[in-house]
């Protein structure tokens, strides 16, 4: 289909797609520059409408150049080189410190259990009940670790996406390909859900009962 400038838009789009496929790393700013140079040679033959269109293409070229300059000024390399590793290191330290604290608590509890075994009656029962509650509470460590692992994975995804955007605008090599899909069995691993989204034990019991 031709527009009122006599341009076959469909053919042009197909042609541009073919060029893009042959040159996947092509720089948008360079393409805009080439278009600008070509159109500049046609000034004398252009109508008022075509000159307006040329102005818009030139404006688009300037916007692309400005966007590149702004991305460069953001120093996004710091995100991959410094911010993301620093954040993941901090999160790893949280896991390590809470794990060490949990192990200390468990060790003390085990000592209390040994003391409880030397007691009789109510004192033994109270000690045992108290240590049971502490053991139950200590499972927070496992949940916390899994939640932090999810956050680290999210940070790495953000890092990869930023690298992809920067690579596209700055004409750098494409970032590494996405990892292959998880093997069967791992595909169902979602980690802990937020309380509002999680199934409770009673929901799970009901679901299991529905199979009987």
């Amino acid at each position: 289909m031709h527009d009122d400038l006599g341009i076959d838009a469909e053919a042009l789009a197909t042609r541009l797609a073919k060029i893009g496929a042959r040159h996947p790393g092509s720089d948008p700013a360079m393409v805009a520059e080439v278009v600008r140079a070509v159109l500049a040679t046609m000034h004398g033959d252009l109508s008022a409408r075509e000159t307006g269109l040329l102005g818009e293409v030139e404006e688009l070229g300037r916007m692309i150049a400005a966007a590149r300059a702004e991305i460069a000024a953001l120093q996004v390399d710091d995100i991959s080189a410094s911010h993301i590793p620093s954040a993941t290191d901090e999160l790893d330290a949280i896991v390590a410190h809470t794990a060490a604290a949990t192990d200390s608590i468990l060790e003390v509890c085990e000592t209390l259990d040994r003391v409880a075994s030397t007691q009789q009656g109510e004192a033994a029962a109270m000690l045992s009940e108290a240590t049971t509650r502490i053991y139950e509470a200590c499972s927070f460590q496992d949940i916390t670790g899994q939640r932090i692992t999810k956050v680290v994975a999210t940070l790495k995804t953000i890092d990869a996406k930023i690298a992809q955007i920067v690579g596209t605008f700055a004409g750098r090599a494409a970032p590494p390909a996405a990892p292959p899909p998880a093997p069967a069995g791992e595909a169902l691993l979602h980690g802990p859900q937020l309380p509002a989204n999680a199934m409770h034990q009673s929901d799970i019991d009901a679901l299991l009962a529905s199979f009987d």
């Binding site: 139950e136 169902l188 691993l189 199934m199």
Partner: peptide
């Protein structure tokens, strides 16, 4: 497990799990 989505419970049941406890849990 901390995996508390219905699809996890269903997959475990289909694989022959005897019961399923979601973390955190108590004694």
């Amino acid at each position: 497990t901390a995996e508390s989505k219905a699809e996890n419970v269903v997959a475990a049941k289909q694989a022959g799990v005897s019961n399923y406890i979601v973390k955190p849990f108590n004694a």
